[in-house]
Design a protein around this nucleic acid. Structure first.
Lengths: 162, 162
DNA sequence: CCAATTTACTTGTCGCTACAACCAAAGTAG
DNA sequence: CTACTTTGGTTGTAGCGACAAGTAAATTGG
């Protein structure tokens, strides 16, 4: 900020493409999931995180970091998913401020029925356009950026999900 | 979809980090611009695209592809920016269905005053965490993904902007 | 042990985006 | 030319996320 630190031609070229993808990707994921499962990608991801947690249960705070979201946002989303019968909220015994979100049987079935279509679009639109080298590079680069965007929470990531 | 084409461990690892970044990055950009310039990143980008166009003018359709957005979305955004005096809309002479969006002098000043702060955060949070190899890899990978997400419109991208 | 603070979460409101519907002008077919 | 379709754009509505405020329980400090 002190000096005019503009971007180099290479940096700018990469950046413009990057934000284009960031702008377009959510829409692509949402559209497919909305049509085939009546689910937002964020809702899908929330259910997915729960489905892999022990006892399919997570405290709201843990779930919010797992989904890279804020607590208010998660609270609204979980409220909706609870109304639809996919999640049950119960007060936590050890800490009575806390709330446990648990995937119901219906929620379990929901995500398992939605998963194949979702994974298919992820493959078609992103993953399968990249070779093994690309994947390794993407992983390395996104890990760096993530560490900068979300310092400290990176370690929270579960490695199984989609 | 026919077979169980789940993701490999490497693919999944990269994918989870990728969507985490996709989820977090817009918020980071929006927050900074909102505080320092009362602008959405999308509004900033819209103004930026106009500022680099000949005569600082673009037809709505051209602007919508340049900003990777839909026409309804752009129409709303331009309407707001027009109310704030940053853009002027005028009917197009050659094609009377079309509308030209032109950056006003106030809009020109706005984006120039907002640019340093924005570029600074882009550097701090993303670009400067990556070395030259990373940048080249990012560019290559995002170009591939973009071609898959937005077939045909990739060539539309202007290379000067941020 | 009581006040102050922090943590965990919920709720209300506002603004933005997606989607659908709409209108008008331009191209196209008969 | 006249109907039909396509293109270019706007507008209305509904739903989601951000932010601010609020509640309640746990923790900390004197």
């Amino acid at each position: 900020m002190t000096t005019d630190r503009w971007l180099s031609a290479e940096q700018l070229h990469a950046w413009v493409r990057f934000i284009a993808v960031v702008e377009l990707l959510p829409g692509v994921l949402d559209t497919q999931l909305q049509k085939e499962a009546e689910l937002t990608h964020f809702e899908y991801f929330t259910l997915a995180m729960l489905s892999e947690a022990p006892d399919r249960t997570l405290r709201m705070t843990a779930l919010s970091t797992a989904t890279n979201s804020t607590l208010p946002r998660l609270s609204h989303v979980v409220a909706r998913l609870e109304k639809r019968g996919f999640i049950a909220r119960t007060p936590c015994a050890e800490d009575r401020r806390a709330t446990n979100a648990q995937l119901t049987e219906a929620g379990w079935e929901k995500i398992h029925s939605a998963a194949p279509g979702h994974v298919s679009t992820v493959r078609d639109r992103v993953i399968d356009t990249l070779d093994a080298t690309d994947i390794a590079d993407l992983d390395r680069i996104m890990s760096k950026v993530l560490a900068s965007l979300d310092p400290g929470n990176t370690f929270t990531l579960l490695d199984r999900s989609a």
